[in-house]
Write a protein that binds this DNA or RNA. Structure first.
Length: 833
RNA sequence: GCGGAUGUGGCGGAAUAGGCAGACGCGCACGUUUGAGGGGCGUGUGGGUAACACCGUGUGGGUUCAAGUCCCACCGUCCGCACCA
């Protein structure tokens, strides 16, 4: 081996070797136990950042560890390569999105290879490649066939200056991020995925996901937002119309003193038409429509409302109550109309106080009487029903059920389950996305593109201009099409799909990356799915993870999959920070992975990032810490260098017939201790990786073993076998973390096969046994002495021996021992008075 | 406001089932090697004290022979969600 640890030479040597010998290849083989490890595939922005390095290092440790444990490991990589940045680059630099994207992919692939991640590169996919988006389109059609895709008019964020729809993320403080123009709502015909059909099952099955962080499951539960309540009809006075309100508190319905409609509610115009309220109400509605959702629906926003002049009737008590409109009622949720019960709802209370509306108490706390004039807050707790006709006197929780039943029985309304989850709007007025495979024929209407015509290719004759409309509309070769039904003229859909559609099934494509016949082959997905370990940032807790679950469940229902959850175990990694905040260009605290790798090597970069914090916690970047990892690898290098001669000599002797097995009893104390630490380290590192993902403590354990190997250098009669076992163990345990240097050292130790295909070591329990151990002697819970005793010493004997210890006598003399706790192998505690 | 996470030396972090707080690393100090520097090797390093005593895991209570760990009540920081009727 080289004198010096020349990481550059050695890392490129092994990367080249891996390219040639493909030790990380994977094939479907039902005879072998499989392990599917996956990092969320990246958007090819151009360069890896530290978050990527962390993400992929974590997954690589798991993949390499499982591979050494004998699993058939699938560890693929690909590119989430459609999306807006490519289009912006096209406009800014007049470079085609495709060119920009593929250049970025090439660069990031090079950077990834420089990290030495054990990907099966034969399975690489890119969502912007026609071979991939053909199947994204096919899936769209499958969902359409099964009634899970529909088209409707929806209000979207609209920038009047750019004449385009904006994603919510592109709306900054209510204005367009590019031109600062205030964003408005616009009604547009859009394609939707009917994810709400799966709301209940997506919610229920969260309980199955025992390998997911509780935090992510809670976020999904809240996002789905199931609530049980009642829809009740209030007749509008003097008309045939009625208003259906949704409430989760039917027990408060006798306390309704007004009803509120969302400004967008279809009845608003009708109720006020031709009345003295018309002009004012219209002005209010227009004002609300001009506001974006964020400022409109913030809790901080002052509640604003206006009387419509119309009245409606509470079906339960016949009360006539005024109809208002207000900013805080949302058309998108429930029925767009709510009943106002100021006595028992905080919002209603604030609204009623502001506009001088009546407050009617219908639930009384068990121990006091509420006075509507003296209340400073709504009373939202359960209590006893009052002023509620036949329901008076019963407790409100019971009344909740009884009133709901009564409403149904009387035909006033129905019980209803509502979800906050909305259908998924997937239309984007963009170029760089998968074209939606639909046609509009004057005669036949909306017609899906036949499967044989897929993919609908993105055209190249398009222009990228700032502020223009969707570039696809400018391509006549794209827009003009033939109707597959009647052969007549048809117009092609020019919207593309949200990139989240592409990323909702990529983990399936990895199982069958090259198939020209199918999106994925059943035999492959049956074997590889579900993903055994998925790792990514918590920012995907809702959208990507929910959409992928939806896709998996739908495809299972269509009969294409035999699993109904895509990701068995999920790890959400923490952020990479510097000076206490997340590394970001805007904060100016980014460290380039490529520079670090050039300066210290990939092994050092990986080791540091895994050592500095447990994976799910935020990590504070420290160049000094990186240097520490760098030093450690040098230290390992020199350790093997130091012992190489001893080991080689012993190997020669072994080959000439000397005995090879280690007899623990025959070892001297120092050798036995080194062997004990070796096996203890195997146990600790295996546990840390397999059950806890605590790579930081796994690495510290390896460091301790290295320190022990160093300490052994001073021994007079060194046992070559024990040394060989110790340093070989160091190399094997370190292999998942630092794959290049360990490969080199493994070779130096005389091995001819890759360390990454070596069997993960197992520990010998007999080697862990100690003859003597240290126990603690306490007096009243305070440590007063330590005692070396034979390992198996029982409680009583331990107590007797401890009692004789001279060091603790001062604490016992003149006192009375009232109690003794003796825990064998741990401690003795004398309780004295 | 609601939900979640989190709080331990100068710093990153350990302590896996209630049993020696501070593993491992960084930093710092000293010694040694070297012509010097760097690097290596080694020793020390929570506060406090001459040495003990003693104090120490955000704060205040509690349970226990024993609490970073369990219970109760607070406080700070970070991250989600945010008028969902």
């Amino acid at each position: 081996m080289d004198e010096r640890y020349d990481f550059q030479k050695l890392e490129s040597k092994w990367q080249k070797r891996w390219e040639e010998t493909r030790p990380y290849g994977s094939t479907t083989d039902p005879a072998k136990p499989k392990f599917y490890s996956l990092a969320m595939f990246p958007y090819p922005s151009g360069n890896l950042h530290m978050g990527h390095v962390r993400n992929y290092s974590i997954v690589d440790v798991i993949a390499r560890f499982k591979r050494m444990q004998g699993f058939n490991v699938l560890h693929p990589m690909g590119w989430d390569s459609f999306g807006l940045p490519a289009e912006n680059a096209a406009i800014k630099h007049q470079i085609h999105p495709s060119v920009w994207t593929w250049d970025n992919i090439a660069n990031m692939r090079r950077q990834l290879k420089g990290m030495g991640i054990s990907y099966d590169w034969d399975r690489e996919v890119a969502s912007c490649h026609p071979d991939y988006y053909k199947w994204t389109q096919w899936l769209f059609l499958e969902f359409y066939k099964h009634g899970l895709v529909y088209r409707k008019k929806a209000a979207v964020n609209w920038c009047p200056s750019c004449a385009t729809v904006l994603a919510n993320e592109q709306v900054v403080d209510g204005a367009c991020e590019r031109c600062d123009t205030p964003v408005t709502k616009k009604d547009l015909e859009q394609w939707f995925f009917k994810i709400t059909d799966y709301a209940q099952i997506l919610l229920d099955d969260l309980d199955k996901l025992t390998g997911w962080p509780e935090k992510v499951k809670i976020m999904q539960r809240n996002w789905i937002g199931r609530s049980e309540g009642v829809e009740a009809r209030f007749q509008v006075e003097g008309t045939e119309d009625d208003i259906t309100v949704y409430t989760t508190r039917p027990d408060t319905i006798f306390g309704v003193t007004y009803v509120v409609l969302a400004p967008e509610h279809p009845l608003v115009a009708k109720l006020t038409e031709g009345t003295s309220y018309e002009a004012e109400v219209k002005a209010f509605v227009d004002k609300m429509k001009g506001l974006n959702e964020i400022s409109r629906t913030s809790t901080d926003t002052e509640k604003e409302g206006m009387l419509t002049g119309a009245y409606c009737v509470n079906p339960l008590n016949g009360e006539h109550v005024p109809i208002w409109i207000a900013n805080y009622v949302l058309m998108e949720y429930g029925t767009g109309a709510v009943m106002g019960v100021p006595a028992h709802d905080e919002r209603d209370f604030a609204f009623a106080r502001k506009y001088g509306l009546k407050i009617q108490v219908v639930i009384s706390p068990n121990d006091q009487q509420l006075n509507q004039h003296e209340m400073t807050n709504a009373y939202t707790e359960p209590g006893v029903m009052v002023n509620s006709g036949q329901f008076d006197g019963i407790d409100s929780k019971t009344a909740m059920v009884k009133i709901a039943e009564f409403i149904e029985k009387q035909g006033y309304g129905l019980r209803k389950v509502n979800f906050r989850l909305r259908d998924w709007l997937i239309s984007r007025q963009r170029y760089w996305g998968a074209p939606i495979p639909m046609l509009y024929c004057e005669k036949c209407g909306v017609v899906p593109v036949p499967e044989k015509d897929l993919p609908v290719m993105l055209p190249t004759d398009v222009e990228f201009k700032p502020g223009g409309e969707s570039p696809l509309k400018t391509s006549s070769t794209f827009v003009e099409a033939v109707c597959p039904c009647c052969g007549g003229k048809a117009r092609r859909e020019t919207d593309t799909m949200d990139t989240f559609v592409c990323s909702s099934w990529y983990f399936l494509r990895y199982c069958t990356p090259k198939s020209a016949e199918k999106a994925f082959e059943r035999k492959d997905t049956d074997y590889w799915m579900s993903v055994d370990q998925y790792v990514g940032g918590v920012e995907h807790a809702i959208l990507h993870l929910l959409y992928s679950r939806f896709f998996t469940k739908a495809l299972r229902d269509f009969g294409y999959l035999n699993v109904d959850e895509p990701f068995t175990n999920l790890l959400t990694q923490g952020m990479v920070c510097m000076h206490g905040s997340k590394m970001s260009k805007s904060k100016g605290n980014v460290v380039s992975p490529e520079e670090i790798i050039n300066k210290y090597g990939a092994d050092t970069a990986r080791l540091f990032i895994l050592f500095a914090a447990p994976p799910e916690k935020d990590l504070e970047w420290s160049e000094q810490g990186v240097e520490g990892s760098y030093r450690f690898l040098h230290r390992v290098w020199r350790l093997i260098q130091h012992y190489q001669e001893l080991i080689t000599a012993a190997d020669k002797k072994a080959n000439s017939g000397a005995k090879n097995a280690v007899d623990n009893a025959a070892l001297d104390d120092a050798a036995r201790e080194l062997r004990r630490i070796t096996h203890l380290t195997i146990k600790r590192v295996t546990d840390d990786i397999a059950t806890r993902f605590n790579f930081n403590t796994a690495i510290s354990a390896i460091m301790e073993l290295v320190n022990a190997c160093y300490a052994y250098r001073d021994q007079a009669n060194q046992n070559a076998q024990v040394v060989k076992e110790a340093v070989s163990t160091v190399v094997m345990l370190l292999a998942p973390f630092a794959p290049h240097i360990t490969e080199e050292l493994w070779e130096a130790l005389g091995n001819t096969h890759s360390v990454h295909l070596a069997a993960w070591p197992s520990y010998d329990p007999a080697a862990l046994k100690q003859d003597e151990i240290t126990v603690v002697v306490q007096v009243n819970g305070k440590v007063r002495d330590r005692l070396t005793v034979p390992a198996g010493l029982e409680a009583k004997a331990l107590e007797e021996q401890a009692l004789k210890e001279p060091h603790i006598q001062p604490y016992l003399t003149g006192k009375q021992v009232v109690k003794v706790i003796s825990v064998p192998g741990k401690l003795v505690n004398f309780v004295v008075k």
